[in-house]
C-alpha cells in the first residue's frame, strides 16, 4: 500500500511538471483490456453517447486531464461523494489502464 502511495505521488507530481502522460508509453502498468473492463464501472453513470446532463461525459477526455481529476477525487481535494468512492479503490494500474483505454476511444 505504501509503495502504491509513493508511486501515486510521483504520478501526481509528474502531471504538474509536464504533460508526459499524453504519451501512452509512460502509463506504467497500463493494460487497455483491463481499462475497457474497468470502464464498465464508469458507464453505469457516464453516458458514453449522450450530452452529459447532470454527469459529465468522460469520453474524449485527454489522458492527463483524466488522471489529474481522478487523483483529485482520490485525495478528496475535488468534491463528489460518488467519484471519491470510485477513485478511492483505483490504484496506479487501474488509473493508467483506464487512461489508456479512454485515449483509444473516439
Amino acid at each position: 500500500m505504501k509503495s502504491k502511495l509513493v508511486l501515486l505521488s510521483i504520478v501526481f507530481s509528474l502531471i504538474f511538471t509536464n504533460s508526459i502522460f499524453a504519451d501512452q508509453k509512460h502509463l506504467v502498468g497500463a493494460d487497455a483490456d483491463y481499462g475497457e473492463h474497468l470502464f464498465g464501472e464508469c458507464v453505469t453513470c457516464h453516458n458514453s453517447t449522450g450530452l452529459g446532463q447532470g454527469i459529465p461525459k468522460i469520453t474524449g477526455m485527454k489522458t492527463n486531464q483524466f488522471i489529474t481529476k481522478i487523483l483529485a477525487y482520490k485525495s478528496k481535494e475535488k468534491e463528489n461523494a460518488v467519484m471519491q468512492m470510485v477513485a478511492e479503490r483505483l490504484g496506479e494500474e487501474e488509473i493508467n489502464s483506464l487512461a489508456l483505454y479512454l485515449s483509444k476511444l473516439k
Binding site: 453505469t44 453516458n47 453517447t49 449522450g50 446532463q53 447532470g54
Partner: peptide
C-alpha cells in the same frame, strides 16, 4: 438530483444501447 438524472441516462444507455 441532477446527478441522478445523469445516472438514469447513463444506466439505461448502458443497458439498452
Amino acid at each position: 438530483y441532477e446527478e441522478s438524472i445523469g445516472w438514469y441516462s447513463g444506466i439505461t444507455s448502458d443497458m439498452f444501447s
